[in-house]
Simulated scan of single mutants.
Amino acid sequence: MEVRSAVRLINQLQYKPGWTLDAEDNTNRFEGTVKVRFVFPAYHSERELAEEGYPTMTGGSWAEFRIVVSDCDDTELYRRVLGKIMEIELHEAREFLRVLPTYWAPFHPHRVDGMKRWGDLEGDLSYGIA
């Protein structure tokens, strides 16, 4: 698929309310790729907020990914974009899974012990989630 076509197709995608996807040509950096920026609503996930039900929003969390598009058709492109969305959702799930009564997060992706328990030795920072 041509990068120009991939950008157009990705920019036509819609996910959950409050989510935006913005693709751009990334061939100046990596041949046959697009860079996709996801902006999504998220709650502050600090342990001390867990008992209150995480009452405050972050004001816009985001993640950026490069996706190789030169070797795919439209269905494969959508699969790759959805795979990146699933990485974001997994990251968030690891932050919010808590053990009562202490509200400990065994797989928290921002903590070395949580990364090790999950087997994510490089950490989610390698995925560009902020």
Rank of each mutant, 00 (worst) to 15 (best):
M1Q: 08
E2A: 09
R8C: 09
R8A: 15
I10K: 01
Q12N: 14
L13H: 01
Y15W: 09
K16R: 14
K16L: 15
W19I: 05
W19A: 02
T20F: 01
L21C: 09
D22C: 12
A23G: 08
E24N: 10
D25R: 04
N26W: 12
T27F: 02
T33A: 07
V34Q: 02
V34W: 03
K35L: 14
V39K: 05
V39F: 01
V39I: 08
A42H: 02
H44V: 11
E46T: 08
E48N: 14
L49V: 02
L49Q: 01
L49T: 02
E52V: 03
Y54V: 00
P55W: 09
P55Y: 10
T56D: 13
M57F: 13
T58K: 09
G59Y: 03
G60A: 02
A63Q: 09
E64F: 00
F65D: 03
F65I: 00
R66N: 10
V68Q: 11
D73M: 12
D73R: 12
D74N: 15
D74I: 15
D74W: 08
T75Q: 13
R80G: 07
G83D: 12
K84Y: 01
E87M: 04
E87T: 05
L90V: 05
H91K: 08
H91R: 07
H91L: 04
E95S: 08
E95N: 12
F96T: 11
R98P: 05
L100R: 12
P101Y: 01
T102E: 13
W104K: 13
W104I: 09
A105V: 02
F107N: 06
V112E: 13
G114Y: 05
K116A: 12
R117E: 12
G119T: 00
D120E: 14
G123Q: 05
D124L: 00
L125T: 06
S126F: 11
G128A: 03
G128R: 02
I129S: 00
A130D: 15
